[in-house]
Design a protein around this nucleic acid. Structure first.
Lengths: 335, 335
DNA sequence: CAGAAATTTGCACGCGGGTGCAAAAAAATA
DNA sequence: TATTTTTTTGCACCCGCGTGCAAATTTCTG
């Protein structure tokens, strides 16, 4: 059967071009030994039939899928959209497809990883936040995921590759900005305190600030990077605090929290942002530039980081160069 | 070789369990004819070895991948995150995985579809906005995508299945709300005016309003569902308009536009939302409930729609029942 | 133009598992 | 217990393509 009985295979093309199936396959392979003449013949026939090599069969035969699982558990943070956009775009440009795995309602990431492994993904990339050492280890136990990569976050797990910007440098820049802008009574608002895939932001801020001023700031944390949680936290914590005892700046672990905090400052406490209490974030989410927020924040070099991810997938790139990407402090009106 | 030489196959399990490979496969198949005894033996051996059936091989053999391509071209709208979350969750629960395809930088959707087809996806689901008749047709020319589904949007293309809520009913509800709240001088703000995968919202609003009041409202449209574009549109259009000639309500095609519009009203025109100009949206995006926006909007029954999508994938469900999902008007302070 | 060297091409077999059918085993019947 | 019926199991062959090697061509020498 030729074209209609399902899909066109290399055999169909071979028949039309008058060569063997293997020659057809070679024509589609980058650096195969094939004469220009027969490649041309094959390509013409292929085009005529609308033939395209089947990735399933290819993957099965080569044990390489060019598929990457992207594990996401945090759909409340709009910045994730930006990350997804950047990652999918750059992966695709390098020949990889992306399997989107929602891990937000599984108590454990390993089930998700197992599932991805059944599709033989070349790597699993975590841009979620609530994976901890334990689930990573369990997942790795299955051993079928060839590479496990934590994106935009540190990981202390040795079996894991982490690609992220230099959190210390970034947070130091924020700290300096906050200090030299004259703020003296900061509070740090952190996200979930997980085990392995964590950020250095809180530690860095606290220690930097202590080094500079001699006093260690207070901090609080919420369970998820959800603006609503930050809102409630700020609202409840400061509602009955006399104005003189309020912090003069809230340093937030990311923009999602910062935006929740800003809303609370305005609508719960009835105060002005930056005049009464300043706020800083992290990520430069799309909404950060909105006139409502005008958020002072830090932009990670996502494109560069995504390209490093490709390098890791292709097996080049040393592990040591992957945690020092430099981003940029973005100063707006909120602090 | 047993476990370490790569992955464990059914043969390994068969050897350990003392049965043939085919018995092992049967043990993993839902309704296969196999004795309870040998299934148990197999499962024990499988567990011991950590065997899991390979989805690549299965797909190749059965011509069914349980993979769905999700095509997204609009990463500026945070509501897309919600849709992705809902879709991936429900698809996964029904045994499907999701391939995330970013079509925002391809001039044509067909390349993306072609790519997905190489992985033999069972269906392609579009939640993007800028697909038009032509690219859909081209894509279908490739014929390798078994089903093409437009989610949360109408399509006039016959080869396409569209799953969406009853836009007419929804928009009628908004129209009635706006009218009975006393607004009399509306302007409709629409997104891109594409060919096939479009919304009925604008048409419905204009005709409903005309029917009710006798006059046809003005409208404007932007090229993408991007808050910034709506911001600029509103800012420029009304900047020099005397206050008496301003509309009293902006009816927006979705929340992304509505939020941009609100920002412009406040920060460009210096007016109050709802007192001076009211605003309505559509989607009930997460930010719609933020105290900054308090957006009156309409929530689509996403879960129900996602479940209908599964029905379509499984081949049950008639086409006629797919465009009449009923959502809910959510009244907040913006209108 | 013969013979050697370099290219191309064809082919058996494998990747991991599904299908239908026939042989074997177990259960039911007489 | 012998026979028939039903349930299990094993097997050949297929899904579409890649790999290594040997056979067939082509190109290069002398």
């Amino acid at each position: 059967m030729n074209d209609q009985g399902g899909s066109i295979t290399a055999d169909d093309v071979a028949a039309l071009a008058g060569v063997s199936r293997w020659t057809v396959n070679r024509a589609f392979k980058k650096d195969a030994s094939i004469s220009a003449k027969s490649r041309e013949k094959v390509m013409k026939a292929a085009q005529e039939l609308g033939y395209v090599p089947d990735l399933l069969a290819t993957s099965l035969a080569t044990d390489r899928t060019n598929l990457v699982a992207l594990l996401v558990d945090d759909f409340a943070n709009p910045h994730k959209l930006i990350m997804m956009e950047r990652l999918t775009r750059i992966l695709r440009r390098n020949g990889y497809d992306t399997l989107l795995v929602n891990t937000s309602d599984e108590e454990d990431a390993s089930a998700a990883l197992l599932n991805a492994s059944q599709r033989r993904v070349d790597a699993a990339v975590l841009i979620g936040v609530s994976f901890n050492d334990q689930s990573l280890e369990t997942a790795l136990g299955a051993k079928r995921v060839k590479k496990l990569i934590v994106f935009a976050r540190m990981s202390s797990n040795d079996n894991t590759i982490s690609i992220c910007c230099d959190d210390r440098a970034a947070m130091t820049a924020i700290t300096q900005h906050v200090f030299s802008a004259g703020y003296r009574n900061p509070v740090f608002i952190a996200g979930p305190q997980s085990q392995s895939a964590h950020l250095q932001r809180k530690e860095t801020f606290l220690s930097q600030w202590e080094k500079t001023t001699g006093s260690r700031p207070k901090f609080a944390s919420v369970e998820r990077y959800d603006p609503k949680l930050a809102y409630d936290l700020v609202a409840e914590w400061f509602r009955d605090t006399p104005k003189s005892e309020l912090p003069d700046v809230l340093v937030c672990e990311n923009d999602a929290l910062a935006m929740g905090a800003i809303d609370a400052i305005r609508f719960e406490l009835g105060l002005r942002v930056s005049e009464d209490i300043a706020v800083t974030g992290f990520d430069n989410a799309p909404q950060a530039s909105s006139p409502h927020y005008e958020l002072t924040t830090y932009r990670q070099p996502l494109t560069e980081m995504a390209e490093a991810l490709v390098d890791v997938l292709e097996g080049r790139k040393r592990k040591s160069t992957l945690n020092a990407f430099q981003g940029q402090l973005i100063v707006r009106k909120s602090a």
